[in-house]
């Protein structure tokens, strides 16, 4: 039972960390919005899905890559990666901005009912995924092979592949950029102020609507990047792919203490690792169950997540 885990420990660890970074980036979309609005952004899984589709569209139609062609190399490879990631991030950010405008803004000013925006976000999610389904079909589509799955080095018998390495390095850079932005920029200070106390922030002259829009957009940027990395590693897209990944990413955010972006970082990585290890030990079909049992156990003993919600300094 534990044979696979022991024999392939390092290889599993690397893919676990790569998966973890995808979770971290999607979790940013949940945790930042939760930080300022205290609401779950239920459309975030669809925002991720659209980001993944953007990568496929750009690589397929702009660069005319196909599923079985040899991946590009050197300068062209760099160009393709750059264009795809930028396209994904922009598409998702734009969508996130629109979601806030349509599903949240009007309701926020009209009602104190906290479930109404949830339902309208779910509605928007249905609309987005149905539009994608109508245009692309209900079947899983195979994405072009963008980054060659070249082995860069071996470590204790485990191959360190280019695509996972790219996910880890770029994911880390994006996370650090976001963290710095929120900590040091003027707009980031606005986001933190709103997350601490909306009314006082308003009194201090923070433009609430702008800050909330910005939060959604930033979350969308991160989530879109996750779409690119997902396509890069797993090479398939489907109109309802966002569901399971979004759920796992949200779990990651809760594990780390939702609203806390460093917590989400820790939560994402550990969830990625646990998922991969658990799949190796008891089989992939039980993966969702292990994830949720861990979540329930953590919330039982640490009801605010491991790092807690109340760390004001690191909180969004």
């Amino acid at each position: 039972m534990f044979d696979t885990l022991i024999h392939q420990f390092w290889s599993l660890t690397f893919s676990g960390i790569a998966l973890g970074f995808i979770y971290v980036l999607i979790a940013m979309g949940y945790t930042m919005v939760y930080g300022v609005l205290r609401m779950i952004n239920f459309a975030n899984s669809e925002i991720f899905m659209v980001g993944a589709f953007a990568t496929v569209m750009v690589s397929k139609y702009v660069f005319e890559l196909s599923n079985d062609a040899i991946p590009p190399s050197n300068v062209k490879l760099f160009l393709v990666i750059l264009c795809c990631i930028v396209a994904s991030m922009l598409a998702s950010a734009l969508l996130a901005f629109l979601v806030e405008l349509v599903a949240y803004r009007h309701l926020r000013n009209r009602t104190t009912n906290r479930i109404a925006p949830l339902i309208s976000a779910i509605g928007i999610g249905i609309v987005i995924s149905e539009i994608v389904r109508i245009f692309t079909g209900a079947r899983t589509q195979f994405a072009p092979n963008i980054v060659p799955k070249k082995t860069l080095a071996t470590f204790q018998g485990a191959e360190i592949r280019l695509d996972s390495t790219l996910t880890i390095v770029a994911g880390l850079i994006l996370f650090i950029l976001l963290d710095r932005f929120i900590k040091y920029s003027r707009l980031g200070r606005g986001i933190r102020a709103v997350s601490m106390d909306e009314d006082s922030a308003k009194l201090m002259g923070v433009n609430l609507n702008r800050v909330i829009s910005l939060t959604f957009t930033l979350g969308g940027l991160m989530t879109g990047a996750a779409g690119f990395f997902y396509v890069n590693v797993y090479e398939n897209v489907k109109f309802n792919m966002g569901f399971s990944l979004g759920l796992a990413a949200f779990t990651a955010a809760v594990i780390g203490g939702i609203g806390n972006i460093r917590g989400a970082f820790f939560g994402g990585i550990s969830l990625g690792l646990v998922e991969i290890y658990a799949s190796a030990v008891i089989g992939t079909q039980w993966k969702p169950v292990t994830v949720f049992i861990i979540l329930i156990l953590i919330l039982l003993f640490k009801p605010n997540g491991i790092f807690g919600e109340a760390i004001q300094r690191t909180r969004v």
Partner: peptide
């Protein structure tokens, strides 16, 4: 018994997880 001490959105995600656990257990 274990979850009702949680509030609001944590309760939401735990109940959501419970629903998935029941479904996946039946599936497997």
């Amino acid at each position: 018994i274990p979850t009702l001490r949680l509030r609001g959105d944590y309760l939401a995600i735990v109940t959501l997880g419970f629903g998935e656990i029941v479904r996946v257990s039946a599936l497997n």
